[in-house]
Computed example of a mutant assay.
Amino acid sequence: MAGLNTRMEIDTAFIERLSHLPEEIAKAARRALAKTNIWLRNITRIELGYELAMDSKALRTRFRVYRKGYTSKLWVGVNEIGVHRLGTPKQTAKGVQVGKHFFDKAFISPMNSDELLVWRRTGKSRSVIERVMLDIADEAEEIIGSYLTELNKKFKEHFDREFQFVLSGT
Rank of each mutant, 00 (worst) to 15 (best):
G3W: 13
L4V: 07
L4C: 10
N5L: 09
T6M: 15
R7C: 00
E9Q: 11
E9F: 09
E9Y: 09
D11L: 06
I15T: 07
I15W: 13
E16G: 03
R17S: 14
L18E: 11
L18I: 12
L21P: 01
P22L: 09
E23F: 11
A28H: 05
A28L: 04
A29M: 11
R30D: 08
L33Q: 14
N37M: 15
N37Q: 12
I38N: 11
W39F: 11
R41Y: 02
T44N: 12
T44M: 07
G49E: 04
S56C: 08
A58D: 06
A58T: 07
T61R: 15
R62T: 04
R62P: 09
R62G: 13
F63D: 01
R64I: 10
V65G: 02
Y66G: 03
Y70M: 13
Y70V: 01
T71C: 00
T71H: 08
S72L: 03
W75L: 10
E80P: 04
I81V: 15
G82H: 01
G82A: 09
G87P: 07
G87W: 06
G87Q: 03
G87T: 06
T88V: 14
P89H: 06
P89M: 05
P89I: 03
K90Y: 10
A93T: 08
K94H: 03
V96H: 03
V98C: 06
H101N: 12
F103N: 04
K105D: 10
A106K: 06
N112M: 05
S113N: 13
D114S: 13
D114H: 10
D114N: 13
E115N: 08
L117H: 10
L117Y: 05
V118N: 07
W119G: 01
R120D: 00
R121P: 03
R121H: 14
T122D: 06
G123T: 10
G123H: 09
K124S: 07
K124I: 04
R126L: 10
R126M: 03
V128C: 00
I129M: 10
D135I: 00
A137M: 05
A137P: 01
D138R: 13
E139Y: 08
A140H: 09
I143H: 05
I143P: 07
I144G: 02
G145L: 02
Y147S: 02
L148S: 11
L148R: 15
N152R: 05
K153V: 08
K154T: 09
F155D: 01
E157R: 05
E157P: 02
E157M: 04
F159N: 02
R161T: 08
R161H: 09
R161G: 00
E162A: 05
Q164L: 12
Q164M: 11
F165S: 14
L167M: 15
